[in-house]
């Protein structure tokens, strides 16, 4: 607990309220859009809300972060302030961990309890009376009621695209590490190179993931609607993909800032926060690859 004397308390700021309005418009617009699609009513207003909300949110992020970066570059931030950001980011990542934890928990419960019970296993397996012809298996190709949840033809082969994706994402964690090392050595060309390569790996991952989804939907009959296998598969990989997307955007911003000459060998919290996030996304993928694709 060293320099306490100069903790920077920012003056009034309009970014938070802009953020709150933006969030309200985005989520309210999304809700209204889904609602009007369901009700088959006019959705123009909802679309306007959603789009303007998203724009406002994006503007808020840019403005808010720009303000923070400017303050930091003016030297307003003490070591203590730096710790606040670090702790804040770590706890934020922890909250993300818990979000994925919930979905992995769901997968576990479904596979270990729910599906076997539907097939009559255990003393609570009475549900088998509802669909006597149902047979438990994993991957669950055919749901208890195949009329409502059409069967899956085939599941994704883990040793093709998912394996490649694993290599790409794990590799990207190492290239990012190399970028960080280069930053610490003040080797800017290498920093740009490694960071750029990391982004390329991330985007390739996303591209392959999209390709895999199209493949699943068009050729394998594996969709969100094909029973619990499809539901868990797409929710887990989908939320992970969303996080890779966010992570890639963060890395792109970092690359932009590197080109602007930001970050010094001993002060580069923004870079580290982005790197933590990327490594977190990578670790989630390793769990995904094993529990969703392999096992």
């Amino acid at each position: 607990m060293a320099q306490h004397s100069a903790y920077y308390v920012p003056p009034q700021s309009h970014w938070p309220i802009i953020g709150a309005v933006g969030l309200f418009l985005t989520l309210g617009g999304a809700a209204a859009l889904i609602y009007s699609l369901q009700q088959e009513s006019d959705s123009l207003l909802a679309q306007i809300m959603l789009n303007s909300g998203a724009l406002i949110l994006a503007g808020m992020m840019i403005g808010w972060f720009a303000a923070v970066i400017a303050e930091s570059r003016q030297g307003l931030y003490s070591a203590q302030m730096d710790r606040s950001f670090r702790y804040g980011m770590s706890w934020f990542i922890f909250s993300e961990v818990m979000f994925f934890f919930a979905f992995f928990g769901v997968l576990f419960y479904i596979r270990v309890f729910a599906v076997p019970w539907l097939d009559g296993e255990g003393d609570k397996g009475l549900a088998s009376m509802l669909w006597p012809q149902f047979q438990a298996s994993w991957p669950l190709m055919q749901a208890p009621n195949p009329d409502q949840f059409p069967p899956i033809r085939e599941v994704i082969n883990p040793w093709h695209i998912p394996l490649i994706n694993t290599v790409l994402l794990v590799g990207s964690s190492f290239t990012l590490l190399a970028a960080h090392k280069a930053l610490k050595r003040e080797d800017r060309p290498k920093l740009k190179g490694w960071l750029g390569l990391t982004i390329v790996l991330g985007l390739t991952f996303l591209g392959l993931q999209i390709y895999e989804y199209i493949h699943a939907y068009t050729e394998l009959d594996l969709t969100l609607k094909s029973g619990i296998y499809g539901a868990t598969f797409f929710m887990l990989t989908g939320f992970h993909g969303a996080h890779v997307t966010i992570g890639s955007i963060i890395l792109l911003v970092l690359l932009f800032r590197v080109f602007q000459g930001h970050f010094t060998p001993d002060k580069h919290f923004g870079f580290e926060a982005g790197a933590w996030y990327w490594h977190f996304v990578d670790v989630v993928w390793i769990f995904l690859f094993t529990t969703v694709y392999l096992l």
Binding site: F113, W117, F149
Partner: peptide, 16 residues
């Protein structure tokens, strides 16, 4: 969106 997390007909479970 047609998932069946909490619907036994799709292999899910309301108890979940």
């Amino acid at each position: 969106f047609g998932t069946s997390f909490f619907s036994a007909a799709g292999g899910g479970d309301p108890v979940l």
